[in-house]
Design a protein around this nucleic acid. Structure first.
Length: 817
RNA sequence: GCCCGGAUGGCGGAAUUGGUAGACGCAAGGGACUUAAAAUCCCUCGGGGUCUUCCCUGUGCCGGUUCGAUCCCGGCUCCGGGCACCA
């Protein structure tokens, strides 16, 4: 009859849907396991990357279930965001319609792959029942002073009169009308993630089961930097200019100061500056530069402001410049420039003919005799630095910080590259920010009882004139919760990263309407034991989600500090050596593959071809190979039904020969597969060892009374071990031949070691012979055995054995002369 | 530029703690079955040598440590990823 996956797989999927065996609830009497995979954006079709991601999670879930854990394995939809809104602009369909249509299609696709999700816990972030809690969290943050409003520039298309995302403004032109994109400053909402910077950084040390590269990326992203704030008095103006530096030890060499072109002080300076015109021109030029232009060039551009500042240590008067390389987003948006010891300042000084004064000797006795050709960035000993001359950089930093603090013009400080999180989006398809603006009362948060603030339906999608939400009269106008007067609503919606920052807590109680989730459920289920997803989320999502966990903990909802115990980042699925993309025309459709090879074979190949963290190249031939393997396993049952069916007992200790070796191979395989799945997550080698087990089983002669019960037992346990990988086939075989496939085989360590091994005999490190030996053989006995070999005897003839190195059950190396 | 990874047969990969390099699979070649093909099964498969139950050689390159190195150390080359004028 053959292995007919086309018939078997849909039948089991229907059954799983009807019986819902993956439904779980809190059960303190059992050990829990929370297996999480990154939820997809409902783009309409799943892609091979999802197949890989979810196949990995499914294996772990099924494996842990079979081992008696109470496994929660949920799935949901990251359903807000621009594509649905863009589609609405094109087609006129409401984003909600569009999104839910996609969700339906994709859920079916996931079911076609046989994943063991508890669909009762399904969530969609576009559901008001979900985003209500985004709003609730926002209000909580507000209460705690963790949100504030500030101006930030956004990409703006003057022709469409709308805000653009970076990817819509690529190349500096609007994606819809090709107009030149401008930067425009808007008042936006920010979340004080920087308040948690230190904890987010230090917490990484408590995540031993996270990939090192992900932690390294987060460390860089947070970008902690120790230095000093120093205030430079402006000459003739009653204002200070605060700079951040990590090299206060070089301050005696600071010969000018640079401001970011968009530094707030620039507006004041221009009022009184003789260089007013030049300043305006320079600022205008910088504002019109696109991201790309700015990134493309490292040429230093500057403009003298006509203003001078006083170096607080040297008391010297030094010029204040505007400079393109100074970033408003970092530090204070102003730097003290030390051209002798900073390459950027050096280039700037050369270009604008500013003095270069060395103040650090990298080695004792170092003399600056020739003119510098580049900055000397190394630390060393201070020279020409007044009372600090002769002190080492490290010490000088500390002492100078103290002097600055005593003189109230500076202090030691720590800055981060991590910026506060701007969550405002001038878009429709996102969570409305629950704020009301009243002329009398100002900024008023929406009272908790009025949540959720729902997205309005009376909107039109034109792509012009800003967010579609502005077209809704019913949404815009509301009553002030405080005074009852006329007020208007905040029209910005939240960044969708808010949605995905805490969704796995909502899985705990997806329909609870009194809290985002139940505290006791959280205490039982969290943290997530295993989180599988793409490495592209190493920074943004995985930092935000750690941040939210700390927030929710501080709100009293969680008892954990970190959301995820073990993180696995899987590599991309590629084709013909390249990322799959529509433009390259190399996209492989999961549905086509399922139809051709079956879900089980697709899963097996995906897991077999490569370990999870590596890239994987999709190959039809590889899936064929996986299908061949499943076919062979199937056929064995078909050809030997009486062996597979009949569960005859046997005494393992009494087995001999082939039967014994087969039984040992079974237990070696159990040990190996367990270790590969649980400890290493190397599912490729787990499958390889199952193939080895099958190869030995199929090579065994099935004649004879003793071997047959053993072969049956081996086959049944093998199918059980295949259950996480190829669940449809395993279930079908279990049912056809009447055995249970729901529990993991029990390992008997006694049989997980073979009786004999191949003793490798080396002479002076070169392999000279291989001899079968008993496991556990003593060094002396091994030597006797080796000496008994003709070849070794010949090697030793006339020579002295200086040293015998014996590695138990492996190798004997004889050092001779 | 800085910070992480990585480099093993024709290909994907294995070798988990320094101990048989190439498990497992794909591709390829040969054979069996067949009127034929597909499917299936069997054999060969890093390179070289007088193709042998034998020898030499081989894990990007150069050197080191060690009885022994794909694995550890130093110096390179190339590839991938992240960050990128971060003061």
């Amino acid at each position: 009859m053959g292995y007919n996956f086309t018939e078997i797989e849909p039948r089991w999927q229907k059954r799983w849907e009807a019986e819902d065996p993956y439904r779980v609830k809190r059960d303190p009497s059992r050990k829990k396991f929370y297996c999480l995979e990154m939820l997809p954006y409902p783009s309409g079709r799943i892609h091979m990357g999802h197949v890989r991601n979810y196949s990995i999670g499914d294996v772990i879930s099924r494996f842990m279930t079979m081992n008696g854990y109470n496994v929660m394995h949920p799935m949901g939809w990251d359903a807000m965001g621009m594509p649905a809104e863009n589609a609405a602009i094109k087609s006129g369909n409401h984003p909600r319609q569009h999104t839910y249509d996609h969700i339906e299609m994709m859920r079916t696709q996931l079911q076609n792959l046989g994943f063991s999700y508890d669909w009762d816990r399904e969530i969609a972030s576009c559901d008001p029942e979900y985003y209500k809690w985004n709003q609730w969290i926002f209000l909580k943050m507000m209460e705690k002073g963790l949100v504030y409003r500030s101006r930030r520039s956004v990409n703006w298309c003057p022709s469409c009169r709308t805000v653009l995302a970076n990817e819509q403004a690529e190349g500096g032109t609007c994606w819809r009308c090709d107009s030149e994109v401008e930067l425009k400053e808007l008042e936006q909402w920010f979340v004080r993630i920087t308040d948690y910077a230190e904890e987010l950084l230090n917490g990484l040390d408590n995540l031993p089961q996270w990939p090192e590269n992900v932690k390294a990326m987060q460390r860089h992203w947070i970008g902690r930097s120790e230095g000093s704030f120093v205030t430079f008095q402006l000459d003739g103006i009653d204002k200070g200019l605060e700079v951040f530096t990590t090299r206060i030890d070089t301050i005696f060499g600071s010969t000018f100061v640079c401001l970011a072109p968009n530094h707030p002080l620039v507006k004041e300076i221009r009022q009184m500056s003789p260089e007013r015109k030049a300043i305006d021109e320079f600022v205008g030029r910088m504002n019109h530069m696109s991201r790309e232009e700015r990134l493309a060039s490292t040429e230093k551009l500057g403009q003298f402001t006509g203003i001078y500042a006083l170096n607080p240590f040297t008391k010297k008067r030094i010029p204040v410049y505007l400079a393109n390389f100074v970033l408003m987003e970092y530090g204070t948006g102003a730097v003290m420039s030390v051209p002798a010891h900073d390459q950027r300042d050096f280039e700037f000084a050369k270009k604008y003919q500013l003095p270069i004064v060395p103040v650090i000797a990298p080695e004792p006795g170092f003399r600056y005799e020739e003119e510098l050709t580049e900055a000397v960035e190394a630390s060393g000993v201070l020279i020409d630095s007044g009372v600090f001359t002769g002190i080492a950089s490290d010490t000088a930093k500390i002492e100078m910080n103290e002097v600055a603090e005593a003189g109230e013009f500076g202090r030691g400080a720590i800055t981060y590259k991590l910026k506060d999180w701007g969550i405002s989006r001038q878009r429709y398809w996102g969570t409305p920010i629950p704020i009301i603006y009243c002329d009398k009362c100002g900024i008023v948060p929406v009272p908790e009882k009025d949540l959720p603030v729902r997205l309005p339906d009376d909107v039109t999608f034109t792509g012009e004139g800003g967010s579609p939400i502005l077209t809704s009269e019913s949404f815009l106008h509301t009553a002030c919760p405080k005074c009852g007067g006329n007020a208007r609503r905040e029209t910005d919606t939240m960044d969708t990263f808010v949605d995905s920052s805490w969704y796995y807590y909502r899985y705990l109680n997806p329909h609870l309407d009194t809290a985002p989730f139940d505290v006791d459920d959280a205490a039982y289920w969290t943290p997530v034991d295993l989180y599988v997803g793409g490495v592209e989320h190493a920074t943004m999502h995985l930092i935000y989600t750690r941040f939210f966990t700390k927030l929710l903990r501080d709100f009293g909802l969680l008892k954990i500090d970190e959301p995820v115990n073990k993180m696995v980042t899987q590599g991309m699925v590629i084709k013909d050596g390249r990322k799959m993309s529509k433009s390259l025309g190399n996209v492989v459709d999961p549905d086509d593959m399922i139809q051709k090879y079956g879900a089980d074979a697709v899963r097996v190949f995906m897991l077999f071809a490569s370990p999870p963290e590596k890239e994987i190249e999709w190959k039809d031939q590889g899936a064929e190979g996986a299908l061949r393997f499943l076919n062979r396993v199937w056929s064995f049952g078909e050809n030997n039904p009486e062996i597979v069916q009949k569960e005859e007992t046997f005494v393992a200790e009494e087995l001999e020969g082939e039967a014994r070796s087969l039984f040992q191979k079974l237990h070696q395989t159990i040990a190996k597969v367990e270790e590969d799945i649980e400890k290493r997550l190397h599912l490729n080698t787990a499958i390889a060892s199952l193939m080895e087990l099958y190869n030995q089983l199929s090579a065994t002669s099935l004649e004879g009374e003793t071997i047959r019960p053993v072969a049956g037992a081996v086959y049944r346990d093998m199918i059980r071990m295949m259950m996480p990988f190829a669940p449809h086939m395993a279930c079908e075989l279990g049912e056809v031949y009447g055995f249970d496939v729901s529990t993991w085989p029990k390992l008997n360590r006694k049989f997980a070691v073979p009786d004999s091994f191949t003793l490798v005999v080396q002479v002076n490190g070169k392999i000279k012979d291989k001899i079968e030996a008993w496991v556990g053989i003593e060094a002396d006995a091994a030597f006797e055995l080796a000496a008994g070999s003709e070849r070794i005897a010949a090697e030793l003839a006339g020579k002295t054995v200086l040293k015998k190195i014996y590695v138990p059950d492996r190798l004997l190396n004889l050092v001779v002369r």
